[in-house]
Structures are given as structure tokens and as C-alpha cells.
Design a binder for these strands. Structure first.
Lengths: 114, 114
DNA sequence: CATCACTGCAACCCTATGATTGCAGTTCGC
DNA sequence: GCGAACTGCAATCATAGGGTTGCAGTGATG
């Protein structure tokens, strides 16, 4: 299980600037860590760590191709996160709406309870 | 302009654990910074800073109510982010698919060019 | 076979930032 | 008016983690 990380964790992975750039590059096509290092202003090792983080949350997958390891961006993972965030956002809006209604119309609202 | 931050920036705001908890709380209903502090294991000042960050990217809005400032989670902002991420994810998948096709079918593919 | 490119691991540095405390200014309730 | 509660600003602390260098191992290439 490495693809069901909580939304916040995935967002944390996405939030780091360098990581976002790496991911953007990978979005254009699969690439090895070394190849990325040649194109970006950071060392291969640093990129390697970022790729570890990204793989941890399922945003990239790695594949051994000969002597090098090729990474590919997992769009589906991003789509899954999008769905989660969208759902949460809608819940917030719904609750807020209910609260507002209740404030203007404080009668037949909340029944029993604690 | 405080609501059109790049996806990565919004994700960075969402990625901080404490910030996510604060936001979750606010998702249940509007609250002041002090009220949040009484319910969470961090100081009011710390919460205040987090709220600043969240407001910066449009995830919360503040409203002066009497002597206190009430914050409310902006679900619409989360929905907007979700749409952006979803779009990006689909682009990745599309590109990847095209590359795969091209690998298996290396004829009528890439036209001229260097 | 000798060399070169790519990977993985480990130790280390240094900055960003999450969290704290302390104080001063405002608005509410009595 | 006086005290209590809420806010804002500033200084400070401490840790997480992003970045680096260095080295050893392994598969490709000539």
C-alpha cells in the first residue's frame, strides 16, 4: 500500500517547489534521475530523494530499464487526489450553507441531540 | 489578487499537518483563532500564522465579528484546485499514452524536426 | 578486459519555518 | 470605569528537511 496516502500527505509532496518541477518534467515523458539532474539546477542525489517521496505517495512509478531507472508521472494519482479534494470542498460548502440558513431561520432546524 | 496562486503553492499550504487540521476544523463551521487554539495543542499565535498562510492562497476568508475575527473555510477554492490538478493529471496520461503508441508503432508518427 | 555511466547509501551543512513567549492595543461585559 | 477576552506585532528557539559531497557497487560499451 503506497497509493492511498491521505490528501494532506500527497499535497505535502506536491507542495515542494523542486518536486513540482521534477513532476512537471516527468509529465512530459519518462526520464531517469540522472537525465533530470542534467536538466535541473540540483544534484542527482537531491532529485533521487524527491523521487523517493513522490513514489511514496504514488505520484510516480519507477521501472528498471537496463542499467538505469526510468520514472514516470502517474496522472491517475493526481486525478484521485483531485476527486478527494473536490469532495471535501463540497462538504464544506454544504455545511456552511446549512449554517447560514439556520442563522436566518432558527426554527425547524436541529431536532434532538445532546 | 490572492486567489489565483499556482497549484503548487496551494498544495504547500495544504500539506502542512497542523494547517490541514485547522482547515478541517473550519470546514465544520466558522471559528475564531482563539477558539481554535482552545481546541488544538498549539498556541493562538501559531494558529494565527497558519491562518495567514491559508488566507494568502484563498483557502480561508476572515470576517470581523465584533471584537473577534471569524475564519471560514472556502470550499470553492479547494474545488478550483481540484479542477486544476485533474486537468494536469489528464494531460500526463494523454502524453504517456501517445508515447507508448509511438513506441509500438514507430511509423507515421513524428514529422520533421531536428 | 578496461572504462564509463548510472545507481544507492551515508554523512554533513544550513536555511526555512513551525512553535513559543512576551507585550501592547481594542472591544465587550459588568 | 475596570477587568477580561481577543487581536496583532516582534523576538527567539529548535527541528525538519532540502541540498551537497564522497564513495562503492553494478550493468553497459568500446
Amino acid at each position: 500500500m503506497t497509493a492511498d496516502a491521505a490528501p494532506a500527505v500527497v499535497c505535502a509532496a506536491l507542495g515542494e517547489p523542486t518536486r513540482w518541477k521534477i513532476l512537471t518534467r516527468l509529465g512530459e515523458g519518462p526520464m531517469s534521475a540522472s537525465a533530470l539532474a542534467k536538466v535541473m539546477p540540483v544534484s542527482r542525489q537531491a532529485i533521487g530523494k524527491h523521487l523517493d517521496v513522490l513514489r511514496e505517495v504514488g505520484l510516480v512509478e519507477s521501472e528498471q530499464r537496463g542499467r538505469e531507472v526510468v520514472y514516470v508521472a502517474v496522472g491517475a494519482r493526481l486525478n484521485a487526489l483531485a476527486r478527494e479534494l473536490d469532495r471535501i470542498g463540497r462538504v464544506w460548502e454544504t455545511r456552511l450553507l446549512r449554517i447560514k440558513e439556520l442563522a436566518e431561520n432558527p426554527d425547524a432546524g436541529p431536532p434532538a441531540g445532546s
